[in-house]
């Protein structure tokens, strides 16, 4: 029935839908306030502009918070030089504000995000599950240079990935790109040698343990600070490696998890399987 529709009509219909959608988005963009600004001197919080969270919480408790107008959303604020000193709470512990939001304010989101990736990887592995078939001989074997080169490159790439996720709270990056970098190093190993297989059980254990570590960090927060995923470590001085509380711990867990997970996904994509149903 649908197959009989000529291709032209289909394209015209598609163009129509696309046009409506684009016009709507343009309209929305025209009528929205543009250029959101944030004052870096103040701490990042819900409004990111007026105040830091501690004062805001105090105002909130006394009922004055919402009485203030929401006007100065885009106001430019006079610049005061920042002095880095010992920080009182996680809010000003991390130099990278995005990290602070990802892991601390919205840490629960990040837990969910890790879960989504884990479930997608599980789904891929479940679908491509089966008895491994030996790969046919390729016409072109990778050369010796490729073999040695990928192995040397793997060491460097691995180190770089670890650097990215350990420094997540200081520099751009964090657990997800770090893990992806490590996984791409392992992808290089696959390309360097025919029939390369990583240690499957090792990957599985690694993946599970780092996931469990994340949840257990959250549960420690629940039992010590009385709130799930709450920070329970000192926050240190901005810009130091040992600062920002539990952010680096969580990023290490995320990095290892993402790395091993994506490596497992690549592995099950590359291998040939023959499924069997009992």
């Amino acid at each position: 029935m649908k197959n009989d529709t000529p291709k032209v009509f289909k394209s015209i219909f598609a163009l129509f839908v696309v046009a409506i959608f684009m016009i709507g988005l343009f309209y929305a963009f025209v009528s929205m306030p543009k250029g959101w600004g944030v004052n870096v001197n103040n701490r990042v919080s819900r409004l990111y502009i007026l105040k830091n969270v501690r004062t805001a919480t105090r105002l909130l408790d006394s009922g004055k918070f919402f009485a203030k107008g929401m006007k100065p959303l885009r106001a430019e604020v006079p610049y005061k030089p920042i002095k880095f000193k010992k920080t009182a709470n996680l809010e000003d512990g991390a130099a990278n504000v995005v990290t602070s939001i990802v892991v601390d304010y919205r840490g629960f989101d990040t837990l969910g995000e890790v879960t989504v990736l884990f479930l997608a990887a599980s789904g891929v592995m479940m679908l491509l599950f089966g008895k491994r078939v030996k790969p046919k001989r390729k016409k072109t074997e990778p050369s010796l240079i490729m073999y040695v080169g990928t192995r040397i490159a793997f060491a460097v790439i691995f180190l770089f990935g670890i650097y990215i996720f350990v420094h997540g709270h200081l520099t751009p990056g964090g657990g997800f790109p770090g893990g992806a970098v490590i996984a791409s190093g392992i992808l290089g190993l696959f390309l360097g040698r025919n029939g390369y297989t990583p240690n499957h059980a090792g990957l599985k254990v690694f993946e599970s343990l780092s996931g469990i570590a994340f949840v257990i960090i959250g549960l420690i927060g629940l039992f010590s600070v009385k709130s799930f995923l709450a920070n329970f470590l000192p926050t240190g001085i901005i810009g130091n490696l040992y600062s920002a509380g539990f952010i680096s711990l969580i990023y290490i867990a995320i990095g290892m998890k993402v790395g091993s997970e994506l490596a497992a996904v690549v592995d099950s994509m590359i291998g040939d399987t023959k499924e069997e149903w009992s």
């Binding site: 884990f118 254990v205 799930f228």
Partner: peptide, 19 residues
């Protein structure tokens, strides 16, 4: 706050089921 366990416990066990 303990109601967070409704999400936390399934996540913990979901990660450990491969083990």
């Amino acid at each position: 706050n303990n109601a967070a366990l409704l999400i936390g416990i399934p996540l913990l066990f979901a990660f450990s089921i491969p083990l």
